[in-house]
Nucleic acid binder design. Structure first.
Length: 418
RNA sequence: GGAGAGGUGGCCGAGUGGUCGAAGGCGCUCGCCUGCUAAGCGAGUAGGGGGUGAACAGCCUCCUCGAGGGUUCAAAUCCCUCCCUCUCCGCCA
């Protein structure tokens, strides 16, 4: 959610941001609506103030004088009620449009509207050159008996997978390893709820826009999170954080659930794109002037993890039009997938500035009053994607797959073997 | 799932229709005092919106006592619905 003050003072900044995203909104209508709301509200408040003053007199009066005053107050009460209803109607109309506006795009975010417009920031490592018949992750997963999508289809349908055997052990080692690294970077480990209320999804900006991507449990009015970003962000909702405590950094481990609506036919082999996967997510609350540095820091941490896993990758600055509603700027790390012959997303790191904190009311104290904090999120380890990137990049001619050296002490074996 | 208790400011806690955005305490901030510390004394200390301002200054004003609705001239206080927490029983990893 944007600051309404910005609509009054610099509507052209909002317009420019919307242009960069390729979103068309009638801002003039919102400006006019906002003015009208203030006018009517002011009128309502003046009536209310008069009524309240009269009410205080009533307490001291008696007899006819009192009856007469009550009659007048009653009239004022009716007028206030009518005006207030008008205000509420207008506010609802305004709010409905306002909450759909995405965050202001950062000036340094890449231009363009689609994935193709993402700007490569850097490329690290060399895609492996295989002098043997290499396999894709689905084939490797089956051969090594670490991924079973066939039975998952029987049990749960398409886009599900069993991770078994050495694959399951790798997950636990990977998660433990990543958590330890993050604790070393000042993060507090968390295992947050994966079922949340609507408020948490609204507050993080997934609602109303991405509603169709979220699994709902209507019986209990709960939703399954697509990322622990949701429950980590909402953790401090309605709180005023002590400035000395900032930045607050959390590393959340959770299962993530995504409906993947509208992706029929995309990434249908293996577990590249599934409805359920586990992830270690970084989430930061910080002072507004610190969020740019914090964003670069999160990216650096992500890179160090991917490097330790010995995966060739590139970093892209995501195009404005391809950003989620809450992000002002986003970096993706894309690992090389030999079977696809291209780089594909394995982490994503966003600076959401005050977009989420305004919705969630997460503030801190300053010299004069309170102000909103900034929030950021970034993937540390998306288990499924990392597993398959390891399988594909570290496969060997004898059919085994090497476990990255950094991970060996955590997973307990040096190679996947059939 | 059944029975009961309760949700008030950073925290504890009073307050059952008007003088309450809210006693008192703790904490915190700023002064004073005292060789230092501790103690003591004084003052201050919720959040958000609107109007008027160059102003994130002042002044005026509205809203918020878990959330939403209702009764009333007037609600923290009365009524309804919901949410949450706690205790006991049942069930359960």
């Amino acid at each position: 959610m944007l600051d309404v003050g910005l609509l009054r003072s610099e509507p052209e900044r909002i317009a420019e941001s919307l242009r960069r995203r390729g979103v068309d909104v009638d801002l003039d209508r919102l400006v006019a609506l906002d003015e009208k709301i203030r006018k009517v509200r002011h009128e309502a408040e003046e009536v209310r103030a008069t009524q309240k003053r009269l009410g205080k007199e009533i307490a001291r009066l008696a007899g006819d004088e009192k009856q007469e005053a009550i009659a007048r107050a009653s009239e004022l009460a009716d007028r206030y009620k009518a005006l207030n209803e008008e205000v509420e109607r207008l506010e609802e109309e305004f709010r409905e449009a306002w909450i759909t506006l995405p965050n202001l795009v950062d000036p340094t975010a890449a231009d363009g509207f689609t994935e193709e417009d993402n700007v490569e920031v850097k490329r690290v490592g060399e895609p492996p050159v295989f002098d043997f018949e290499f396999a894709d992750h689905a084939t490797l997963g089956e051969r090594l008996d670490v991924i079973d999508t066939a039975r998952a289809a029987k049990v749960s349908g398409t886009r599900f997978g069993y991770i078994k055997g050495q694959g399951a052990l790798l997950e636990f080692g990977l998660v433990r390893w990543a958590m330890e690294r993050l604790v070393g970077e000042g993060f507090t480990p968390m295992v947050p709820p994966v079922l949340v209320r609507e408020m948490a999804l609204f507050g993080t900006g997934f609602f109303p826009g991405d509603r169709e991507q979220v699994y709902a449990i209507p019986q209990d009015d709960l939703y399954l999170v697509g990322t622990s970003e949701v429950s980590l962000a909402a953790y401090h909702a309605d709180e005023i954080l002590e400035p000395e405590a900032l930045p607050i950094r959390y590393a959340g481990f959770s299962t993530c659930f995504r409906r993947e609506a509208g992706t029929y036919g995309k990434d249908t082999t293996g577990i590249f794109r599934v409805h359920q996967f586990d992830k270690v997510e970084m989430f930061v609350f910080c002072q507004p002037d610190a969020s740019r540095d914090e964003h670069e820091r999160l990216l650096a941490i992500e890179e160090s993890l991917v490097q330790a896993l010995e995966l060739p990758y590139r970093v892209v600055n995501v195009a404005a039009g391809d950003l989620g509603a809450s992000a002002a700027k986003k970096y993706d790390i894309e690992a090389w997938f030999p079977s696809q012959g291209r780089y594909r997303e394995i982490t994503s790191c966003s600076n959401t500035t005050d977009f989420q904190s305004r919705r969630l009311k997460v503030r801190t104290r300053g010299e004069k009053g309170t102000h909103l904090v900034h929030t950021l999120n970034g993937t540390a380890v998306a288990v499924g994607r990392v597993l398959i990137a390891i399988l594909e990049n570290h496969q060997r001619p004898d059919g085994t797959v090497a476990v990255p050296a950094a991970l060996r002490p955590y997973v307990g074996f040096d190679a996947f073997t059939p």
